[in-house]
Amino acid sequence: MRIVILSSSVYSETACAMAVRLCESVHVPVGAIALPAANRGTLLRKLGQWGAKDVIRYARTKLIPQRGEKQAQVRNPYLQPLLKHKGGIFRSLRKVAKCYDFPVVICKDQNSPDSTKQLKAWSPDLIIFTGGNILRKPLLDLPRLGVLNVHLGMLPEARGMSSPEWSLLNDVPVGVTIHYINEGIDTGPILQRCEFPDAARCASLSDLRNRLIAFGIEKAGEVVANLDRGAISATPQSHLDEDRQFFVMHEWLQARASERLTQSQSAAMAGR
């Protein structure tokens, strides 16, 4: 199967881990397209949108990995088993590509003509989205099977942003959904819904997110293998007529979600 990975940056840990997971299961991508990590245009645009304080934080997260190849730790510790490589750590998609021999192309916009032209040349069966722009129809129509996304929530119950937090507050099972992207927000056909069994073991909301990302990558690897064997098909989502989209959660509600997580921990401890 011809697979292409779309990434928000060559330094995206999620993209690196996804690429390694695919390569280890003998599905080496035919290529990857990444957005530029930090250039002057991006920084100026983000300065206008975010303000100086957040831009400094953004630049720090993007620049430190470039200098910090020697660093042993990764930001998401649950990805470390995948990112470990010959005593070091895969910190860039380029390093993964070099190791497993596939090309990485940098494009300013994943929907741009350059990106589309490159994708056409690779003629992918499947594109795996790990971050970046909102994808437009011409790109979505390119791969034979579709563009696959790992959503950190159970669909259709938890569409949109802050899904793990909303799931906790709304008493919806925490989990991930592997689905095809369509023109709506998290409304594409579902390949697999996977409930996360270890939510009660998570120490915090960020710990839960990190574990869900690792869990999602593992499940996506299984789905790709099943797609390759023709053993899985997508099911259209129900409740498309209802607006089930959630938006970024305010910190006050995040604190309540965190309390729910603590309560579920206590309940799990009491049950043991």
Partner: peptide
């Protein structure tokens, strides 16, 4: 209005 913060997390913190 020139430097307004318009990203998704603009108003999520008190």
């Amino acid at each position: 209005s020139t430097f307004e913060q318009r990203h998704l997390c603009s108003y999520t913190t008190t």
